[in-house]
């Protein structure tokens, strides 16, 4: 699967990364090379192989429904780039 500049632009938009034209060209080439290497996997027949998501065979890790202390509002907001009246402030959405 050849990677196009259009693909790179689409992916950059999905990943919320502003990219310059030069970056698009560079990433298209670099990611294309890496994908070419990755596609080596295609040589393996995995038709009858179950995917493995966790290295450990674990299941059902549950927690008791017991309240634990929250942070204070000041702690919550302490690293906020912009805060206003107890909230995180963000630019307009539309």
């Amino acid at each position: 699967m050849a990677l196009s500049e259009k693909d790179v632009q689409y992916v950059a938009k999905l990943a919320r990364l502003e990219v310059t034209e030069q970056e698009v060209a560079k990433y298209t080439q670099q990611l294309g090379n890496i994908l070419g290497y990755i596609e080596e996997m295609g040589k393996l027949d995995t038709a009858n192989v179950e995917p493995l998501t966790h290295p450990l065979d674990m299941k059902n890790v549950f927690r008791e429904d017991v309240v634990k202390p929250s942070l204070t509002q000041a702690e919550v907001l302490s690293n906020g780039p912009e805060v206003q009246s107890g909230h995180f402030k963000v630019p307009k959405i539309m």
């Binding site: 699967m1 990755i38 996997m41 393996l44 192989v49 995917p51 493995l52 998501t53 290295p55």
Partner: peptide, 14 residues
């Protein structure tokens, strides 16, 4: 083609 394939290869390696 990529993620699912890699998870299968992961099982083979394991």
């Amino acid at each position: 083609a990529y993620y699912l394939k890699a998870l299968k290869v992961r099982r083979l390696i394991k």
